[in-house]
Nucleic acid binder design. Structure first.
Lengths: 213, 213
DNA sequence: GCTTCGGTAGTCAAGTTTGATTACCAGTTT
DNA sequence: AAACTGGTAATCAAACTTGACTACCGAAGC
């Protein structure tokens, strides 16, 4: 799964109605250009595709006052809602090891009820464990791990990564169960989008971490 | 960076001369279809692209004895060698967090001298640290991390991941410095390809870990 | 002797991603 | 007032990826 659909659906959904540039801006606000493939081309493509598939409804709108070409506003459809939650649940549970999907999942998890988020994360840990066992079973040759030579280091990396992730997930579950954050149906939701005219504190001009990579 | 070029160059290089199917088989032997986008289409595409770019030299060959369409054999050119080592060094040092690049880097690191591998890995750790600092600096708002709400968990995940990786890298450096594995210029290299006619123990039919994901 | 099956080797269309580029307007300089 | 700068909004070609499909041969089974 690529994270772009989840991100775009989530952004449109939080706005109620949004055009491409708005989505693009939100994703930048969330830092998504740093940890996902959220380039303009991908975003506009995703919007069009999902409109074609009936997940979004497109409204043709006159050119904005702020200049630029005529823009299209999108609104999420019931089918889109459904897809959104399906993607979100999948992103939270499946052990996929891609940063973009994980980060998006965390960003949107509060759209689910608290109990469900916890349950999904626990399922995630179960799957990590399962995967870990499968790797261990499958890749250790009869003559012991030494036989693999330096290739064994790859397996070692995977196991290390899996353990670190399970660890992290357990930590987050603890905080959620301890009452942290505001989930669906618990009053004022966390505001995660820029309202019209609001300054984006993370806009270009600042130094971003990926510059250092 | 996508890992496919590194993988294909490395495979061709180890063979001296190889056709697409051989490369494809090696990658399967290494388990690459599980942790990278090494599908047949991508492999053949990469071979053709790199041949066009002068990184590989293509020899048109008559149909094999084993049936099938006429095949093309590829050989790495000096430019290809150079590109290979550039990609490999980059994969080892840059903190890229993609499993495929990392795994490929480990698989091929023994093509470098031992001292250089260690130096590159140390540089990797330095960059992870640098990245970690940048994230911490940049994403902590004035009002303390609590202001971020659940979004702070994303940052937390990154830091957790970065620490786990630095940890792992330090472990591997220790083993390498302790004399483990056989690096370039140290005698008989580790055999990482299937020779003609050899059975692939990981060929289809077995259960692979990703089935469980 | 014929048919089926599995392995060998590769192509292709459809979809996705990338990075550069366009076009427009408002405000600011020169 | 003409030229420049920067933000808004989007498009496009080229490259890459995906998954299904083709074509061929040898061996095993009936």
């Amino acid at each position: 799964m690529s994270a772009i659909r989840l991100l775009v659906l989530g952004a449109v959904r939080q706005h109620g109605r949004a055009h491409g540039y708005q989505v693009r801006n939100d994703l930048e606000y969330w830092g998504a250009h740093e940890w996902s493939n959220a380039k303009p081309g991908s975003i506009y493509h995703a919007l069009k595709q999902m409109a074609k598939q009936g997940l979004l409804h497109a409204h043709e709108i006159a050119p904005s006052t702020a200049g630029g070409p005529p823009r299209t506003e999108y609104e999420i459809t019931p089918a889109g809602e459904q897809e959104y939650f399906a993607l979100l649940r999948d992103a939270l549970t499946s052990y996929d090891q891609k940063v973009d999907v994980k980060s998006a999942a965390i960003g949107f998890m509060v759209d689910l009820p608290r109990a469900e988020a916890v349950a999904l994360l626990k399922e995630r840990i179960r799957r990590i464990q399962e995967w870990r066992d499968a790797v261990t079973d499958h890749y250790v040759p009869e003559g012991g791990p030494e036989q693999l030579g330096h290739i064994g280091e790859i397996m070692n990396l995977w196991l290390h990564t899996a353990d670190a992730e399970a660890d992290w997930a357990r930590g987050m579950i603890g905080r959620i169960e301890g009452g942290a954050y505001t989930f669906a149906g618990e009053g004022e939701p966390f505001v995660g989008v820029l309202t019209e005219g609001e300054q984006n504190p993370y806009a270009t001009g600042e130094r971003h971490p990926e510059d250092a990579r």
